[in-house]
Simulated assay, not measured.
Amino acid sequence: MNMHTAYLSLGAFYSLLIAIGALALLMGGGSAMSIVQLGIGALAVVGLWGYTLRRGFMNPRIWRPLAGILAIAVVLQLILVLTAGLSKTDITWMLISAVFSALLVVILFNYGNRDQALWASEADVEGGKTLEALLKRQSPLSAENVTDKRKASVTVGCEGNHYSVRVRREHGGEVEQFEERFNHPATLAFFIEKYTCITADDIAQQNAASKQS
């Protein structure tokens, strides 16, 4: 069994647990807390399937906070095991739940990393390919965007398997500068356009013009 098959099996298992829990609630079993737990569990399973299928579901910003909530739940379960004087059966189920929750913590934390291709739009992917090709020929690259009230400039470089970007923005006499590093060129393209309104095509055109001059 390879890792992908293992994740598929894990996703199917968690989905079955959620389905059983939902059926129990529909039959009148469980409390308000059970509904909350089932909702969190269902959301975690969505993230698990997204990670397994390498597809971006919902928003990447929600997955790491959810991983944090599950991590807190794991710690609380372990504290109960050590201090609450539970029966052997309850301890067994608590430990099983903690193990499976801990696995989800790791998966959802990695899934919530914005710097990967699964969160990129088609435009970001194409922009990333353009930047990657440009940086293979020349590094660093610079470009700017000037309007009546704002000026933004960006310098992009490639350092091994990482991409670096330095942004400078001017507005109303105020200057703002910041730097970031990325592993995936599509994320780099997204970041540059979001914070400077400079596209990969703009960078290509301006650097081609500078060579000609």
Rank of each mutant, 00 (worst) to 15 (best):
L108T: 07
G11S: 09
R64W: 02
I72T: 05
T92A: 10
D124M: 05
E126D: 12
L53R: 11
T52M: 01
I35E: 05
L23A: 14
N113H: 06
T83E: 02
L104E: 02
G47F: 08
R137F: 04
I79G: 11
V74F: 03
G28L: 10
S87N: 07
G29V: 14
L66H: 02
D115H: 04
L103V: 14
K136E: 13
G41H: 10
G85T: 10
T92V: 15
R114W: 04
I91L: 02
D90G: 13
I35F: 12
L76N: 06
L82Y: 05
G127T: 02
Y7M: 15
G41D: 07
F109G: 02
A133V: 03
L66P: 02
I96D: 03
L131G: 02
W63F: 01
L95W: 03
G85K: 01
K136M: 07
M27Y: 02
I20S: 12
S9K: 15
I18F: 09
A42Q: 05
A123E: 15
V99I: 14
D115K: 01
L108W: 03
A32V: 14
F100V: 15
A71E: 00
R54F: 06
S139M: 07
L103P: 07
A22V: 11
T89G: 11
L10I: 14
L26V: 13
S9P: 07
G127Y: 05
D115Y: 00
E126Y: 10
V45P: 04
G112M: 01
G11F: 00
G85E: 02
I79R: 11
R61T: 10
L43K: 03
L103E: 04
I96V: 13
L25F: 03
L82S: 14
S34T: 14
I96F: 15
S121A: 10
L118D: 01
L23G: 13
L43S: 09
P140S: 05
E132H: 09
V46E: 03
W63E: 02
G56I: 00
A12N: 11
G29E: 05
L118S: 04
I72N: 00
R137A: 10
Q37H: 12
Q116T: 02
L10H: 04
D115C: 01
D90I: 06
A123D: 14
G47L: 08
V105I: 08
A24D: 09
Q37Y: 11
S34F: 08
R64K: 12
E122M: 01
G39R: 08
Q77W: 00
S97N: 11
L118F: 08
T92Q: 07
L8R: 15
G68E: 05
I91P: 06
P65S: 03
S9T: 12
V106Y: 06
T89D: 13
A73M: 08
M27R: 13
Q37F: 14
L16Y: 13
L8H: 08
K88Y: 13
F100T: 15
I96C: 09
G29Q: 07
I20T: 09
